[in-house]
Write a protein that binds this DNA or RNA. Structure first.
Length: 182
DNA sequence: ACGATGATGAAC
DNA sequence: TTCATCATCGTA
């Protein structure tokens, strides 16, 4: 096996995120989330796509909380839900269009709240660039993920979203840790 | 099945 | 300034 290929690890750049959120979401599977607190392969994500998506925070328009979603791609959007759990999202697509990928499962951690708690990810990362100098970034370590192997399911915890409740915007790697309710 | 726990957006 | 809601999770 080629040593160089095997050890290849590149920082995922900002323009990776400046694409339609459904593409970014699927392409994030198999990538690595890295911080000084840990590192692990991203195995489950969800896409939230624009003002028409009745589950997307962008549907409220640009508010203090949702502002990062309207900003340029390649930034983190971190927010508190249920008064207890920080949700980690990567902002995607073009500036002014609110779309983001929720990171649901990484490595051994299945569930977005467990991941952020374990790694100490909180609002201090909100609106920061997705790059090493921010302390939280994404790496490509060469893991091959055939698009045909990606599992698609409805998103979790958005029963209020009417006709958007069942769209398959949740993407998982097979045989990986995944969120409890499926 | 349910409560914890607090920020958010909408209504008033 | 209230009020219902919420991209969850541990306990039962």
């Amino acid at each position: 096996m080629n040593r160089l290929l095997h050890t290849k690890s590149t920082i995922v750049p900002q323009d990776f995120f400046a694409r339609p959120v459904l593409h970014v979401a699927q392409d994030l599977l198999g990538k690595y989330l890295v911080s000084e607190s840990g590192e692990g392969m991203i195995t489950e994500v969800e896409a939230y796509d624009g003002p028409e998506d009745k589950a997307c925070h962008g549907r409220f328009g640009r508010t203090q909380r949702t502002a990062p979603m309207f900003g340029p791609a390649g930034h983190w959007y971190v927010y508190l839900v249920y008064g207890m759990y920080q949700m980690l999202n990567a902002v995607t697509d073009s500036e002014g269009y609110p779309a983001a990928v929720l990171v649901r499962s990484v490595g051994q951690w299945n569930g977005p709240g467990k991941l952020t708690k374990a790694w100490g990810i909180d609002e201090t990362f909100n609106a920061k660039r997705i790059q090493p100098s921010s302390g939280l970034w994404v790496e490509d370590r060469g893991t091959a993920v055939p698009s045909s192997s990606i599992q698609q399911l409805p998103r979790i915890g958005i029963d209020y979203a009417k006709e958007w409740k069942n769209v398959p915007y949740r993407f998982l790697l097979p045989h990986s840790n995944q969120s409890p309710q499926t």
